[in-house]
Design a protein around this nucleic acid. Structure first.
Lengths: 244, 244
DNA sequence: ATACATTGTCTAAAAATCAGACAATTAATG
DNA sequence: CATTAATTGTCTGATTTTTAGACAATGTAT
């Protein structure tokens, strides 16, 4: 008796316009620290080609980002990354309201990052190891929060790459991009304190191909990062300064 | 000195046509067992409305799925899920060739499913619990592999839903959809042997809100499932029959 | 003052999607 | 066996999004 399934739910198609996607890509690049404040962006024709869209479409994306305050256009010189995206107070409010989402994201990271570290310790090449070490060095010499954040991101992404697991890697990239969205701030320096030591421990485990130790260290690191983050969000600790 | 970042790479925009998205949604519904072989799909206007696309767009998606052999259109009766997508031999060959990918997916599941179980044990409502129990009952009375698979899928998805974590849930859905693609076969009855007992243990932990036990049980289950799967793929055990 | 790269603005066309109408088909019904 | 009713097959025209390209406006650097 062929019949339609009663609880049939496949979800819905959501069309994402090309200009919205382009805006998301550029916003993410700024949020992840690939594009830093006051950086000049490529010219519109160039940028459009890189993004794989037409200039008109790119333009709509730029208008959107200008409205959000991520970029400013100085007439015939080009497009620049804004120095300040939003007020500190506004960002902090945003973070509180997004707290639940962040907490979910931290649990998600706590699930995947240790596994990525475990597999990376097993499958890493010397080149992978070098990339991780380079990221840690970059973290140590970072003078600004965006620089630090970029190095930190690179370290974790290097591990996900070394795991040789496409699923973990994709999930981790998504997770990190999602994390940094609200931490776009220049006034929060989360994970600055515990990170250097944590990262070194993880790197050692990678060097010795000790998967379990790498996983445990990563788990501790993610949990501690989350704790620090929560403290900052809820104002228990307040600001910290970068190391000198 | 404002300069363009040298290693500037934001990725590219990829336009995903609505019909491709619709095809993906329907394909996944079949792969996950929401739509079973010989099931009748809703009428085109109805389905188009549910998917949030026009009928023309839906039609392009259907043409695609027909080409892939997922559905067949019996003229004025409607659209039906195909009985057989591909031959058993072809699927088995496909599985071996996709073995690496499956192994990655198993590692990915081993990372996220225990965490989902842990959080589900903590956050589950009675309704969540009832859904899990219903899935187990459905598994016990399943007479065919698709039925069993659907029930199995529902159990794991119920847990991911109960975890109240959108990221874990989405990742788990992706992972399961990816798993079942090559296991669409009727000739593999993986996880049939160990599953009933495993699932009951997990359910007990959920009932008692014992997150750690739930996580451990789930981890063991995923690992054992992977082991059985590997055995079947490499022919160490061969076929099994469904319970009567 | 001038050159020049860049953004601002416009037009025309192509592609995707939508909304709706109507014909064709055939299982089910009486 | 004829009729009904639901469904797919097919078509048209409008709307939205995106593309490709041309040209003017701008203001910095030489």
């Amino acid at each position: 008796m062929t019949k339609v399934h009663p609880t049939f739910d496949v979800g819905t198609v959501e069309r994402v316009p090309a200009h919205a996607q382009a805006a998301t890509l550029l916003r993410r690049a700024i949020q992840l620290g690939y594009l830093m404040p006051s950086d000049k962006l490529p010219s519109e024709p160039d940028l459009a080609k890189r993004l794989g869209v037409s200039r008109v479409t790119l333009r709509e994306a730029i208008r959107q980002l200008e409205g959000e305050g991520y970029v400013t256009s100085r007439r015939p010189q080009g497009l620049f990354v804004a120095k300040q995206v939003e007020s500190a107070a506004k960002r902090k409010a945003y973070m509180r309201e997004e707290f639940k989402r962040i907490q979910q994201l931290l649990d998600f990271r706590a699930a995947i990052e240790p596994m990525a570290a475990r597999l990376a310790a097993r499958h890493r090449t010397n080149k992978d190891l070098a990339a991780m070490a380079a990221s840690i060095r970059a973290m140590e010499v970072a003078a600004t929060v965006p620089q630090f954040r970029k190095a930190d991101s690179n370290f974790h992404l290097a591990i996900s790459k070394a795991s040789k697991n496409a699923y973990l890697r994709a999930a981790l990239e998504d997770a990190r991009a999602g994390m940094f969205l609200p931490f776009d701030a220049r006034d929060f320096t989360v994970t600055w304190s515990s990170s250097p030591a944590d990262h070194t421990v993880i790197l050692d485990a990678m060097r010795e191909r000790d998967g379990e130790r790498a996983a445990r260290a990563m788990e501790a690191h993610v949990i501690e990062s989350g704790r620090e983050m929560a403290d900052v969000i809820w104002g228990k600790r307040g600001r910290k300064s970068p190391p000198d």
